[in-house]
Design a protein around this nucleic acid. Structure first.
Lengths: 134, 134
DNA sequence: TAAAAATACTCCATAGGTATTTTAT
DNA sequence: ATAAAATACCTATGGAGTATTTTTA
């Protein structure tokens, strides 16, 4: 079961017709017919009853419609999250840190090291009271 | 983004290596390499850093791993639900309904009609007080 | 420099596409 | 009898499979 098949199934369920679903997806009716037959075979479940004015969902079809919607929604959320995640990726620039007394210099250095691995194009300038006082 | 690509991605993330993932899936390494490059291109996100001892997930990769797992889980639940749903499909047999007085015979008949459409191989025998009393 | 990944190339399965036949009311 | 689905058939895209080259720590 692939997402493409689920999209086709959802369109057919939505339209109540394989032919109309094909139009809405800009695909030939034969492709949808084949894909849906294949899906039913793979799942071992009859998803529609076919009649001369379209299709009607069986109980299994109704269940698959609900679940497929959830899947598509989750996939869409994943896509948009990835887009957002990508926004702050390639950090570049300089960061200066200064203080009269800086207690945890070593710990800070570790953090900076980790950060630098992730963002190699950011330069650090660290000033502490003890180092610059003399 | 198709489920096949997600499965490949999850295997690679799991193994920390495209080569090992290919072995675990019984597919050529080249196929996985291509599919993963294609996936990164489609999503516009770099999912791994490639090194001489394998791959390491980027932040986007980590996010996609979590979401892909959720998707696969949901798809699996869908499959098993469909299997369960199919179990009680082809009802067959006889049902007898009898009562001294049956007030809502007409309403009951409607229900039976609907039920019979769904389960055409179930026969009904209906006895009411007024019909059988004489 | 030695692994692992990427690329090149062939072959094949299957989706896309067009036309026709079958089905169900 | 008619609209819709199924089937037949051809084409083309893309995955599977094998071999080789490139990359990177």
């Amino acid at each position: 079961m692939e997402l493409k098949a689920m999209r086709i199934f959802l369109a057919a369920a939505e339209e109540g017709s394989i032919t109309k679903a094909a139009e809405s997806l800009n695909l030939p009716q034969s492709t949808l017919s084949r894909q849906l037959a294949r899906l039913e075979e793979e799942l071992g479940a009859k998803l529609f009853t076919r009649g001369p004015q379209g299709i009607e969902l069986t109980r299994e079809g109704l269940m698959l419609r609900r679940r497929s919607s959830e899947v598509m929604e989750l996939v869409e959320r994943t896509r948009s999250e990835l887009r957002l995640c990508g926004r702050d990726r390639p950090l570049t620039g300089d960061i200066s840190i200064g203080a009269g007394e800086l207690a945890a210099t070593d710990a800070l250095a570790e953090y900076i090291e980790v950060f630098s691995k992730r963002h190699p194009h950011v330069s650090f300038y660290l000033y502490t009271g003890s180092a610059t006082e003399g």
